[in-house]
């Protein structure tokens, strides 16, 4: 089996600060990824299980535009996000009319198809080798930030290599979180919640529900694609195995932990899940490496089962607005 956690920091880089910075970056990336799930699942009631597929599209389009088409990194980002939104709209028009469980299955199939294309359309995507030549712009930007800003506060050292990414990721995560929170507090968000509760009732009140669901999926795709781009800066390698359905599922763990309908819960959930996934590396359980990594996911699974069974509103969700249940 391949390295279990492409999202994880490898041990080679391990040393105090760098490790925790890395955990923070991943938590931030998961926050962004899961914000999209929150909008879909928590607020619109559409069970998007293909979120990692949008991340893959965002990362690949950006990376290929920069490395193979010589685009500017800064221009490639919005184009990649826009492309993911277009794909989401096409996917949504096809699949959003399906009932919930079929939609869930169709979206996993979508994300897997994306991954297989990445793996097999070698001429375009470089197959399993992946794409690497897109980080130069980011690297120099990152270096500048370290020299010009972080040096001054004693964080210029090599162990703070990923500090600029950490800062950018969390600023973006918080801005997106506030933006989505703002959107869902509006009349627009009210319609989404109505669709989640009872789509027919919303339609009887004159709401074109497909349109709202497409908007919800499109926004989720946009933040998903952005998360994919951030991940591409963290790894820094865009390869098919970074986009396994597993990572969508971890997003669901984050979502359930933080609580459906709770925006701040997404950030907290992401921090907790990343902590569980990564910090367990620091503790010596007397187990083999494979056993330790297995144990992490067993814990994630148990947390999902127990929360859904006994506290379906999550840590921060409102009981009355419980999306799960009955």
């Amino acid at each position: 089996m391949h390295e279990l956690l492409p999202l994880a920091i490898s041990f080679d880089f391990f040393n105090g600060a760098d490790f925790w910075v890395g955990v923070g970056v991943l938590a931030g990336i998961y926050t962004v990824l899961t914000l999209g799930l929150q909008l879909n699942v928590g607020f619109t009631g559409i069970q998007n299980f293909g979120q990692i597929g949008f991340a893959a599209i965002g990362a690949y389009v950006m990376a290929l535009l920069v490395s193979d088409a010589d685009w500017s990194f800064w221009l490639a980002i919005p184009v990649a996000i826009g492309f993911a939104v277009c794909v989401a709209v096409v996917l949504g028009v096809i699949t959003l009319r399906l009932r919930a469980d079929f939609f869930a299955i169709a979206t996993i199939a979508f994300s897997e198809i994306v991954r297989y294309i990445a793996q097999n359309a070698r001429g375009l995507t470089h197959g399993n080798q992946g794409v690497q030549d897109y980080v130069a712009t980011w690297r120099s930007f990152s270096r500048d930030v370290r020299h010009d800003v972080l040096d001054g506060i004693g964080m210029g050292g090599v162990e703070f290599n990923q500090m600029p990414l950490l800062i950018v990721t969390w600023i973006a995560a918080l801005l997106l979180l506030l933006l989505l929170r703002h959107l869902t507090k509006s009349p627009w968000g009210r319609v989404l919640r109505a669709i989640r509760e009872d789509e027919d009732a919303a339609r009887a009140m004159g709401k074109n529900t497909l349109r709202f669901k497409l908007q919800s999926l499109g926004i989720a795709a946009a933040v998903g694609a952005f998360a994919g781009i951030l991940l591409a800066l963290q790894t820094p390698n865009v390869a098919p195995d970074n986009y396994l359905p597993l990572y969508t599922f971890i997003g669901y763990a984050v979502l359930i932990l933080g609580g459906l309908t709770s925006w701040w819960g997404v950030a907290v959930g992401a921090l907790i899940v990343q902590f569980v996934l990564e910090a367990t590396r620091l503790i010596d359980f007397g187990l083999t490496e494979s056993q330790t990594s297995s144990m992490r996911f067993i814990i994630v699974g148990l947390v999902i089962i127990l929360l859904v069974a006994f506290r379906p509103q999550g840590v921060f969700g409102k009981r009355e607005e419980m999306v799960l249940g009955d």
């Binding site: 069970q47 297995s294 067993i298």
Partner: peptide, 24 residues
């Protein structure tokens, strides 16, 4: 009285426990 989505999510958790239990 758990709903269908709730059960689906639990099966997701169970899948993790099974797969990584076997791997453990």
């Amino acid at each position: 009285g758990a709903g269908a989505f709730q059960l689906m999510l639990m099966s997701l958790g169970l899948a993790f426990v099974l797969r990584y239990g076997i791997q453990f």
